[in-house]
Write a protein that binds this DNA or RNA. Structure first.
Length: 432
RNA sequence: GGGCGGAUACUCAAGUGGUCAACGAGGGCAGACUGUAAAUCUGCUGGCUUACGCCUACGGGGGUUCGAGUCCCUCUCCGCCCA
């Protein structure tokens, strides 16, 4: 059982979401009473445009988890069908279409992520569905007759997601992407019919699509359905959430190692940490409030950042990996690299960009070349700049001038660790 | 179908025959200060065995010229206006 042990929610769901800052809008004022009256089913959709998901996709997953903690039943909708189209919401340009096999493979691969956060057993077991299975068999004529009739083009064009694209000079919107809203609405209708699903969760940018689905259910089934949206994740400095020097932060180990994942959260700025704890962690209110107080009183200790990093790394990578990530960070930032044993060095190096060198190159391979070879820099030019500016280090010790690597630079296990700036590391392995 | 305008480095955006590897802004990287934070200040930001040198680049192709991002022809794509 790899699922992180989430505790049942003690508070009212909407109150909890509101307190966490996860509640952007709901489609009805009666939501609270509706949820209190029984076990409900909600879904959130995910685009299988990659074989993994990033921290940017995490909030909807967390929303489903909170939903489940409150005793309701979650459905993960994999957009195997809609992924073939591409959602225009929040996109400034037309997206490339993926081929069907790629989408199928991505759907399978992403399932692992959901299994870490959601409970697929028990009375409110989560289920996964793939809309390729019903959208794929729809006939064009049928859709136009049965579904399209209920959509007003005039209304669709006024939706923010579409209007934004209609008004830009550079980019238009294809009929394909224009139709996305109809398909997403149909998904909701389908889940309403087959799973008794009456609630859709999504980001604030999904509002228009969600409301369309609710309308469709009312028109065709005379049924009542609801929507809950969460705010989009922002950072206090206005930067893009989820990006680091090395690119997007993913939720699976093959794309982002547990070490980097842990570091990402550890580096959360003071201005963001309180909101991030509430958004991203499943810690209890009391714990969060204690951490927030600590962060305000003694920010230099970064207790809140550490707690968030540990919590999420354990959630997505497991407790063992989380421990490894922490000790790796400790070794790298304390600078005592020669004290590591061969196994630790190897573990560490396996996380880093790396290159190889031959023992015969001791004394001749320059630091600049070594940096290029370990791919920590894109060119020798860049390596030179880095060294000149005092930003390069061998095994954590600053090197002011280019020099050849020598045999004593090797750490146990035959690895030389090269650092660029404060946080970027690479490994050069000794070939044997 | 007709008329007009546009395409420049990661992004936006200057440039209208030599002084252009290309102003400026944003972003990114690095340094100082710090707490592996933010803010601020500074440097760098096409590549090469550091070279007032060479190579590659201003949508694609072809031309004019001693010399072209800059002029001409053509192709592709985009926008606006008229049908």
């Amino acid at each position: 059982m790899c699922r992180y042990d989430l505790q049942p929610m003690k508070n009212d769901l909407l109150d909890e979401l509101r307190w966490r800052g996860l509640l952007h809008q709901t489609t009805s004022e009666n939501m609270g009473a509706y949820l209190a009256a029984g076990t409900r089913t909600a879904y959130a959709g995910f685009d299988p445009t990659a074989d993994s998901l990033t921290v940017g996709n995490y909030v909807p997953i967390a929303m489903l988890a909170h939903w489940q903690r409150a005793g309701h039943r979650p459905i993960v909708l994999m957009g195997g069908g809609t992924g073939l189209i591409g959602d225009p919401s929040g996109k400034s340009s037309e997206r490339p279409l993926l081929d069907r096999d790629a989408v199928e493979a991505n759907v399978a691969s992403q399932k692992r992520i959901f299994e870490r956060v959601l409970d697929f057993t028990g009375s409110a077991a989560c289920t996964t569905v793939n809309n390729a299975h019903w959208l794929g068999t729809l006939g064009y004529i049928d859709v136009l007759r049965d579904v399209g009739k209920h959509f007003s083009v005039n209304q669709m064009m006024m939706r923010d997601s579409i209007a934004a694209r209609l008004n830009t000079r550079e980019q238009g919107i294809s009929y394909t992407e224009f139709s996305y809203m109809i398909l997403q609405s149909y998904d909701f209708l389908h889940l309403y019919r087959t799973h008794g699903c009456t609630v859709q969760l999504g980001g604030a940018d999904q509002w228009g699509n969600i409301v369309s689905g609710i309308d469709l259910i009312r028109r065709i089934e005379s049924g009542e359905a609801f929507g809950i949206t969460n705010p989009l994740v922002t950072k206090a400095d206005g930067g893009k959430f989820g990006k680091t020097e090395t690119g997007a932060v993913w939720l699976t180990a093959e794309r982002t190692s547990s070490y980097r994942f842990h570091q990402f959260w550890l580096n959360t700025s003071d201005a963001d940490i309180a909101r991030f704890l509430r958004w991203f962690s499943f810690l209890e209110r009391g714990e969060i409030e204690t951490l927030e107080a600590a962060a305000t009183a003694r920010p230099q200790e970064r207790a809140a950042q550490r707690a968030l990093a540990d919590h999420l790394t354990a959630l997505f990578h497991g407790a063992t990996e989380c421990g490894r990530a922490k000790s790796t960070g400790q070794a790298l930032f304390s600078g005592n690299l020669h004290e590591l044993d061969a196994q630790q060095v190897e573990d560490l190096a396996s996380d880093l960009p790396s290159g190889e060198m031959d023992p015969s190159e001791w004394g001749t391979l320059s630091l600049l070349d070594a940096m290029v070879r370990s791919s920590i820099v894109a060119s020798k030019r860049e390596a030179r700049d880095c060294v000149t500016q005092g930003g390069a280090a061998i095994n954590g010790v600053k090197v002011a001038e280019d020099r050849p690597l020598v045999a004593t630079d090797a750490l146990p296990g035959g690895v030389v660790l090269i650092k660029r700036g404060k946080k970027q590391w690479a490994a050069l392995r000794l070939r044997r």
